[in-house]
Design a protein around this nucleic acid. Structure first.
Lengths: 177, 177
DNA sequence: GAAATTACGTCAATAGTGCTGACATAATTT
DNA sequence: AAATTATGTCAGCACTATTGACGTAATTTC
């Protein structure tokens, strides 16, 4: 390891800090937070032989019942082939059902079954608990601030994906399609 | 697709909202935010033939120069074999160097080279820009609030990993790791 | 009505990142 | 001297993602 077959650079011994105004603190916190945030559902998923991809599909099918395959691909930003496998498994295990689109019969509208909704809730529960714990002493103001920050972290052109969701009022009825 | 070979559940047509007090809004925002947050460096990395795993190693080697392989594994929460491949590539491309541990010669202390530091900075730059943009109208109070929230999202027993980092004062010297 | 386009499904091949288990070597500790 | 520790490496596997190609059914366009 003290071998020098290649050019070899000298070791830098000082820690990178906030040089050049780079916000390493939040960059790193975001990594840790997301790692642990996803670890909760990952454990449950493994009992079903599912992975994180299944979780995401299940989540959005529950959040936007009736969305089409194309819409789902757009939200997840993955390719058709990547989706195909996990979606098939969710359908085969009766977590998701497909209905022929009413307007356009080529489309497949995706809906959760009772089983699929139950799993989505089970997966969301520990994540929600974690969020509540993190916000325990916080009021609505602080909550709104966190939400605004996270939303601002999303690419502007993709924020439409978020706004189509019933944020928190009512909720029982969903808009047209 | 209207086929019924299996038990088949009925489609649920109502969107999951904040039933049972589940915080779907923030759960979903976290997904979108992280997706876009990581997309910036991913693009740069592909020019080098590197992936997200390389980024993480590079980040922590720059943040805690001199950490050992075991410490790195503990921070990343991955296995030795998963690390081996990416670390080897980073060493072969002269982004990271290994030095024999002074106290314990079995250990390999990891340091960035000038090249490795430059890449770490290049990867962090767009992420930091995104964070600044998201916080543009925010003061130090709001920033601190975001930091506290993210830190609170991390598993308590793992928060030690964060605290060992020079958060923002001084910065030129690092503690005795 | 024929042709082009669209939505979806599927096949083949590949890459990146993670896993487990096993084994080897050198250095340290007991 | 023996056990343990830190690291490296090998084989094999799983999951998620990619690109490109092809087929089918339905819709739209000409």
């Amino acid at each position: 390891m003290t071998d020098r077959s290649h050019p070899a650079g000298k070791p830098i011994r000082t820690a990178i800090s906030d040089e050049d105004g780079i916000d390493f603190a939040i960059i790193e916190l975001f990594f840790f937070a997301y790692r642990d945030f996803t670890s909760d559902p990952d454990q449950i998923l493994s009992d079903y032989g599912f992975g994180r991809a299944h979780h995401r599909v299940l989540h959005f099918v529950n959040r936007r019942p009736g969305l089409t395959v194309a819409e789902l691909l757009d939200v997840l930003k993955i390719t058709k082939q990547s989706l195909a496998r996990v979606l098939k498994q969710l359908i085969d295990t009766d977590h998701v059902v497909q209905l022929q689109g009413p307007r356009d019969r080529r489309q497949r509208e995706l809906y959760p079954t009772a089983k699929g909704r139950a799993l989505a809730l089970a997966l969301a529960r520990p994540q929600s608990r974690r969020i509540h714990a993190a916000l325990e002493d916080s009021g609505a103001t602080e909550r709104a601030l966190i939400e605004r920050f996270l939303e601002a972290m999303v690419n502007p052109e993709l924020r439409a994906q978020i706004d189509t969701v019933p944020t928190k009022m009512s909720g029982k009825s969903h808009g047209d399609h």
